[in-house]
Design a protein around this nucleic acid. Structure first.
Lengths: 216, 216
DNA sequence: CTCCTTTTTTATCGATCAATACATAAATCG
DNA sequence: CGATTTATGTATTGATCGATAAAAAAGGAG
């Protein structure tokens, strides 16, 4: 079956990439239609014909972000042999991803739509919030695997540890957006890993750190 | 000299408080003028006569936030005898402040204007960014004082440690906005403090950093 | 070629944005 | 009292928001 009708003049994926970059930089509500169409080099009717609506375009942009930017961050989480290396690689990859010279700073999932009531963006905000919640779930799952493997004690508070590391990563989005250097973010990652032994080592409830954890 | 002209019908401070709550909840760009005037129970001309502009109103709201919400968080940072207790109290007070039942979750300074290019909010965004940067400076200053006092080793990376703890606190704003419970944020604070020994000395300063954190 | 489908360009649409004109109301001053 | 000053309520302002209507343009199908 061949294509009927007038052929599209622009590259859909390239236009989506331009939209992603603008959404990444200015957020869902902050990126106006006129800015989007200018960045995508198309007219509004072409945008609506190809993507449906601003919200649908944003969802597609988030999906593209997940396919292009996220894997780099989550690679270590899946492939590292130990949970400690997984979390360390996760945070270090985050520091790199959030400070790419030619891309907006920080994470689209975190910065894209924080306020639930920006112009009709409840669904958008809820979608990103769910993705952030899924991230916590994924980190906790990796920790439970480490408990099953015997790497971590049975009493490890996997949810609490996951919440801590996700919080650090989300804070790194703010820091990156504020202009923090890659070195600063790597130092933050090191700081978070300095808590590893204290968090996962024992059955402690609070503040019972063992010894320092030098980086490999 | 007495007040001339028709007296103001509304309480300026109370109206400012309503504006603060709305800005806190929806951000600078997300809080529209019609929403603001509705929340403040006044008409637009009264708003402009009393505050000048939406941006000026926001700056006053931020100032009110700094006078009412910030001191609780920064009290421990000034009064705690040791840097460790100062940072622990700082994070624990943050966990409490970010999860007050009758107030918006998270921090206005962090969530109020993240994207520099929301509708003419460059100045607003820059002001908040500066306040966030000043927070890092304050934390680093407290650490340097601890180095001078001999509590921390001379080689302590005060800027790096300050960046780490500020990053955690900023991440807690995201977490709080996503619905994290007070207990979860306290667990995050505990996690951050688990890194203290490794970050601030690494070399066996455990005598000065044992259990010294009172429960509020 | 003439239909048919789809995209393109141009020019908007109504709604909402932040910000004001204007006339009236309520106080003090002389 | 009248004059002055300031705040209030109503009704808009021009600009911009997201989203379309309408007609011309560019292809395949018959």
């Amino acid at each position: 079956m061949a294509e009927r009708g007038r052929p599209r003049k622009f590259d859909r994926e390239e236009a989506l990439g331009r939209a992603l970059e603008l959404f990444w930089q200015k957020g869902f509500a902050g990126a106006s239609l006129s800015e989007l169409t200018a960045a995508m080099a198309i007219n509004p009717p072409s945008l609506y014909a190809a993507f449906g609506s601003k919200e649908a375009l944003f969802h597609e942009a988030v999906s593209l972000y997940g396919r292009t930017e996220s894997p780099e961050i989550w690679l270590a989480m899946e492939e590292a042999p130990t949970a400690r290396e997984a979390f360390d690689g996760f945070l270090r990859a985050t520091a790199f991803s959030f400070t790419q010279p030619d891309k907006p700073r920080g994470c689209l999932i975190v910065l894209g739509a924080l306020h639930a009531d920006d112009t009709g963006s409840e669904a958008v905000c809820a979608a990103l919030r769910k993705m952030r919640a899924d991230n916590v779930t994924d980190l906790a799952a990796r920790l439970r695997r480490a408990v099953d493997d015997g790497e971590l004690p049975a009493g490890t508070d996997c949810d609490g540890v996951a919440a801590f590391y996700v919080t650090v990563q989300q804070g790194m989005s703010i820091q990156a957006r504020d202009g923090a250097s890659r070195e600063t973010l790597l130092a933050v990652a090191d700081g978070a890993m300095a808590a590893w032994d204290g968090l996962t080592g024992g059955t402690s409830t609070r503040g019972s750190t063992t010894d320092a954890a030098p980086r490999p």
